[in-house]
């Protein structure tokens, strides 16, 4: 049975340059993920999303990337992304 790929969820802001760079990096490396621009949500949906995000990153900084249930990356760090998403393939 092939190992299941963990879900990847990005909490982002549509106005943030670091979020934009993160979305670009993930798309260029064809990493399948769910992107949520929190600032474009409204009402109850926005409140629930913020509460979910707060569970992973109490400081509510962006981008917050959640891999599976509990691995969390915060900020735009291409080196860290390579390690986590490409298993360091780019160095090979």
């Amino acid at each position: 049975m092939p190992e299941e790929t963990p879900s990847i969820k990005i909490f982002a802001l549509s106005t943030c340059g670091h979020c934009r760079n993160t979305k670009k990096w993930l798309s260029e490396h064809e990493i399948d993920c769910e992107v949520i621009d929190v600032d474009l949500l409204h009402g109850e949906e926005k409140k629930k999303c913020i509460e979910e995000m707060r569970g992973h990153n109490p400081r509510l900084t962006f981008p917050t990337i959640v891999i599976g249930d509990d691995k969390v990356l915060i900020g735009y760090h291409p080196d860290e992304f390579e390690e986590v998403f490409l298993d360091g393939e780019e160095d090979a």
Partner: peptide
């Protein structure tokens, strides 16, 4: 990159009515 951030706070101005930090929740 800097101009994308300026664009970001101008978009905040449109959305919220004030030029808030583009990388913070408002």
């Amino acid at each position: 990159f800097a101009k994308s951030l300026i664009e970001g706070f101008l978009k905040k101005d449109e959305m919220e009515g004030y030029r808030a930090c583009p990388c913070r929740l408002t």
